[in-house]
Design a protein around this nucleic acid. Sequence first.
DNA 1: TAGATTGTTAATCGATTAACAATC
DNA 2: TAGATTGTTAATCGATTAACAATC
Lengths: 212, 212
Amino acid sequence: MKNPVRSVVSRSSLKRLPLYLHLLEKLSAEGVARVSCTYIAKEFDFDPTQVRKDLEATGEVGTARIGFRVASLIGRVKELLGWNDTHDAYLVGVGNMGKALLGYRDFEKYGLRIVAAFDKDPQKIKSHVFGREILPMSTLLKVASKTPARIGIVTVPADQAQEAVDLLVVSGVKAIWNFAPAPIRIPRGVILENARLTRSLAVLTNNLVKKT
Amino acid sequence: MKNPVRSVVSRSSLKRLPLYLHLLEKLSAEGVARVSCTYIAKEFDFDPTQVRKDLEATGEVGTARIGFRVASLIGRVKELLGWNDTHDAYLVGVGNMGKALLGYRDFEKYGLRIVAAFDKDPQKIKSHVFGREILPMSTLLKVASKTPARIGIVTVPADQAQEAVDLLVVSGVKAIWNFAPAPIRIPRGVILENARLTRSLAVLTNNLVKKT
DNA sequence: TAGATTGTTAATCGATTAACAATC
DNA sequence: TAGATTGTTAATCGATTAACAATC
């Protein structure tokens, strides 16, 4: 039982970690000090070994028969996810999804801070959404030179996505969080992560018709 | 090159299909009649064999040297996804995400029709969001007896998610589309599909801090 | 001590990628 | 015909699950 200090985390593990974190924080709020992989696994109906592997990636070491220290585990998970740091982000496209993200207060917990929101539509510009002013796209580079950000959130329609991404890349963002169902090209070195609702909807509706 | 009429589609394939569909519809609008896997693969930077396997699942048969008929492929993909049918849905929780989904006009293309929206908050009840009246949670079962729906969309806070799911299950929905970062229990036979933003955010922020 | 849980290795499973004959 | 593309089988890769000794 030595500390492996693993730097390799699988993508699948990363996706499960926020779920664990949420549970751990609930437990912490309830005053629970220790938790076992078995318990976590039962909560989510996962395989206990899988949970153990996922937690192993955090570098936290458990104690046989007892489990892991909740407080310390929370810190490790957050560290691994990068949620202890604050990541400044621009949001491009203040449609329905853009508005929802602007209003999502929990992002703060995940280290995500939207520092500016942009739109092409003159109707939306200068309006305020959740206390934030919507700026014209044409000012993005100027804003970026004053208030740099590392993440670009893309919530424009599919046919404008590449254009928005290109502008964000020029502005110097290091990662794109894309919500548009379009193929996106990015230069080497920039991170692209897609968050499309249609993916899980596809699985759901397929399952639904398959059963009928 | 015979038609296999495969009923097995992998989860991973299903998630990619909406992306292909979007491209196919763009091509169709541009008047393109035929498309090859090679072309689709290049667009998305996927492996051509992977695209071929994905398309094979639709049952559509291509022609060597030429490719697939766009129009016919669109139909097959939609059929496989279940997007030719209309799936009625209830939405529970009219917060930011709930509002965004209510306003998302593209769902119609995916066969998803939100027939009623519910919330616990008396302040929100009777208000209108995108022309739709917000109903009190307590009326859900009554509404369900008049206007049944097969999908329940859960956009409430994590600590209310299970409660919302239970109510939806009692109302008779066959599938839950869950946006809350909480462990959800459902009875056998009900489909659960999670659509949590934190999953892809976790991958993104981890990549970001790993690079620094 | 007894037994639950950890850490870790090995086996299994599923998805991706490589290879290639068939074909238009 | 020549060569691009399909359909399909085999090899590889990665993630999940099983098995089990170490340990508290």
